[in-house]
Amino acid sequence: MTEDGWNGLRAGMPNGGDGPGGRIGAALRGAAWRGRARQVRALLEEERELILRGDLKALAGHAARSRTALDDLTSTPPGGEAPGRELERIRVAAERNRRLLSALLEGAAEARRELARHEKARKRLGYDRSGDPLAGSDTGRGRRA
Score class of each variant (00 low, 15 high):
R122E: 11
R129A: 08
D72Q: 12
L43I: 03
D71H: 15
L115R: 10
L115I: 08
E86S: 11
A103H: 06
G136D: 00
P78W: 03
K57T: 05
R85Q: 15
A64R: 09
E49R: 15
L28M: 14
L100K: 01
A111C: 08
K123V: 12
R99A: 03
E106H: 12
G35C: 01
E47M: 12
K57W: 03
R129Y: 05
L73C: 02
R122N: 14
G25Q: 09
L59W: 10
R91A: 05
E110S: 08
L28P: 04
R38F: 03
K120Y: 14
E95P: 09
R98M: 12
L59G: 02
L115C: 08
R29C: 03
E45A: 14
G79L: 04
H62K: 00
A103Y: 07
G136A: 00
A64F: 08
G136P: 03
T76V: 01
E86F: 15
A58M: 03
A63W: 07
I90L: 02
L59N: 09
K120T: 15
A93M: 02
L134M: 14
S102D: 00
D128C: 07
R53N: 13
L70W: 14
L105K: 03
R41Y: 07
A116Y: 10
A111G: 06
L70D: 02
A94S: 12
A82P: 03
G131P: 09
R113G: 00
L104D: 00
G107R: 11
R65D: 00
R38Q: 07
R48N: 14
A27Q: 07
L104K: 08
L52H: 04
R36Y: 02
R91V: 04
E86A: 15
S130M: 10
W33C: 08
W33H: 13
E95F: 04
L70E: 10
Y127P: 03
E49D: 10
H118I: 10
A121Y: 09
L115G: 06
G80K: 05
G79R: 06
G107M: 09
A82Y: 05
A108W: 09
A64I: 14
A26S: 13
E81S: 08
T68D: 15
S102C: 06
G131A: 05
Y127F: 13
R29W: 04
L104P: 01
H62F: 02
R67S: 05
A27K: 06
G84N: 15
K57G: 01
A58R: 15
R85N: 11
A109V: 07
K120P: 12
D55H: 13
G35Y: 09
G80D: 04
K57Y: 02
W33V: 07
G30F: 05
R91F: 04
A116G: 00
A135S: 04
A111N: 10
V92G: 01
E47I: 02
V40D: 00
L28A: 07
L73V: 01
G30C: 11
S66M: 13
A31V: 00
L59Y: 12
R29S: 10
R91H: 11
